[in-house]
Design a protein around this nucleic acid. Structure first.
Length: 486
RNA sequence: GCCGGAGUAGCUCAGUCGGUUAGAGCAGGGGAAUCAUAAUCCCAAGGUCGGGGGUUCGAGUCCCUCCUCCGGCACCA
């Protein structure tokens, strides 16, 4: 099996924030899980660097667009190691290899007869050198930035025949109900299609910061077409001298936020069909992280969760764990520093961390650090034996929170097992040495099973636990999740 | 306005195809234990399942209606 997973490529105009980290960590967890399962896995992320806003921002800084993009792409790239995310490739849409392949694919769309020259008409600000959407038009038909009057302009550009794919898209959604998940995201896409699709503009004539349209060099492609194609183009040059396209395309899973649902579930499959390419198997639309008050995070409300503060106070694995433990993946959810602290103390320190501590300590204390060669207690077999399969099924449904809950049920089961067996009592009775051996071997095994499934979420911590379980002799280690004064 | 989603314990949420006394975690209450990061484990308590109506032997679940919140409603040119 191959597993190719992507995040959206992040627009370089923004500063990296929790939302970027959230999607990247989700993709990383999925990739690590599938790798562990033995799938041939490829994980792609990167940055989206073309388009008017980037050109504008660069100009405002007195920089060339490319220099501005370099600066900001570096920030996104630097975020990844800090949050434990290890993609197989980091694409930038300004890569010459990407641009060349965008041109190839869209040339094919052109040659297949899916584009035509049309007129776009709209309100234009000469100072912005940009058309404005209805929502962007200020009072008195003025540009909200420059406060000058907008002019009605017409521009000739290339259109993509999206409308021609209406029926095929309807069929896709009917025949493949899990193409878009979760269900409410699929419904939204279907409702959009049902309204009737209009053709969309494919190029911009006024703009230079983009990928040149090969059959009409005065134009560049509309940034979304350039951006979406990254998922495909990256495979062509991610490994120098090797083309991975045949190996990994079509992708198994695109992770996207709900704000870009339309592009990924409608425009994107249509474009791929138009280029005679296969479409991805699944698009998973996750929700938004909101402030602890349930409102959108904002600096002025001060209700945001700063990922860097979490990293500093609780560490990278705690952040990764928290985001998928406290918010059902796929739904919107509230996050806050207080909730992080509660999860950290009660689950990471008290339940998992302490389970590791007490298990290692008892093996060290009662058996001089030597793992008893005893069979495992059959009473735990139903719980432990079924875990891997259940977790795999949850991952197949992209239910990262559900999988974590399944794992946590076993963590709790193991703490309960300690209380049931009371190893400290067994240790006092010489004739029950065999029972103690069994209990300790079972705990060791249980911790091993649980830690293996947990590793995609908390790679660094689980590597520590793994080596502690395999050490000879086995001995206590410093607390994995130390409690702090707060 | 139209379409979709949500409303279940103080808090965060599960509840499958309609089926027995509606579940979990956290917080708060009581207890046990001492291997462990004073962590853990057990017990009890806590709900008019947003309101109202209907279908049914039986409704958190299906239908109608109303209320509240959220999202989408296209070429972000």
């Amino acid at each position: 099996m191959t597993f190719y997973v992507t995040t959206p490529i992040y627009y370089v105009n923004a500063q990296p924030h929790l939302g970027h980290a959230y999607t990247s960590i989700a993709a990383d967890i999925l990739a690590r899980h599938h790798r562990r399962r033995g799938d041939d896995t490829f994980f792609l992320t990167g940055t989206d660097e073309h388009g008017e806003p980037v050109a504008d921002a660069a100009r405002a800084q007195g920089l060339e667009p490319r220099a501005w993009a370099d600066l900001n792409a570096a920030k996104f790239k630097a975020l990844l190691p800090a949050i434990g995310v290890e993609p197989d490739f980091f694409i930038r849409t300004t890569d010459s290899e990407h641009k060349r392949r965008v041109q190839q694919v869209l040339q094919r769309v052109h040659d297949n007869g899916h584009v035509y020259k049309g007129i776009y008409e709209g309100w234009y600000c000469p100072r912005c050198a940009d058309f404005k959407t209805e929502a962007e038009i200020g009072p008195g038909n003025r540009c909200p930035i420059h406060e000058i009057e907008l002019t009605r302009e017409r521009e000739e550009n290339w259109f993509f025949r999206l409308s021609a794919f209406q029926e095929r898209l309807e069929r896709l959604f009917a025949e493949q109900p899990d193409f878009v998940r979760p269900t409410r995201a699929r419904n939204e896409a279907q409702a959009f299609i049902a309204q009737g699709l209009q053709d969309i503009s494919l190029s911009r004539a006024r703009l230079e910061w983009g990928v040149e349209v090969p059959w009409d060099p005065g134009h560049v492609f509309y940034v979304w077409f350039d951006a979406l194609l990254n998922y495909y183009t990256a495979l062509g040059y991610a490994r120098p001298g090797e083309d991975l396209t045949a190996r990994y395309w079509p992708a198994q899973l695109h992770l996207v936020g709900k704000e870009i649902l339309k592009f990924h579930t409608i425009y994107w499959p249509a474009m791929l069909w138009a280029a005679d390419l296969e479409i991805p198997e699944h698009v998973f639309v996750h929700g938004f992280l909101q402030g602890s008050d349930g409102r959108k995070m904002s600096k002025s409300l001060g209700n945001g969760l700063d990922p860097f503060e979490v990293l500093e106070r609780f560490g990278v694995d705690a952040l990764r764990f928290y985001l998928f433990r406290d918010v059902t993946f796929g739904a919107d959810g509230n996050v806050g520093m207080e909730a992080v602290a509660v999860r950290y103390d009660s689950e990471l320190a008290n339940e998992y961390g302490n389970l590791v501590s007490r298990t290692l300590a008892m093996i060290a204390r009662y058996r001089d650090g030597v793992l008893p060669e005893a069979g495992h207690d059959a009473t735990l077999e139903p719980d432990l034996g079924s875990l891997a399969g259940e977790v795999a099924a949850a991952f197949d449904a992209v239910d990262l929170s559900g999988a974590l809950e399944l794992i946590w049920q076993r963590v709790r089961r193991l703490n309960r097992y300690v209380e049931e067996r009371k190893p400290w009592e067994l240790a006092r009775e010489a004739d029950r040495a065999g029972e103690l051996d069994t209990a300790l071997a079972t705990l060791h095994h249980g911790l091993d099973v649980v830690t293996a499934e947990l590793a995609p979420y908390m790679p660094a911590t689980c590597a520590l636990v793994r080596s502690a379980l395999e050490a000879a002799p086995i001995k206590p280690i410093p607390p994995l999740f130390p409690k702090r004064d707060r």
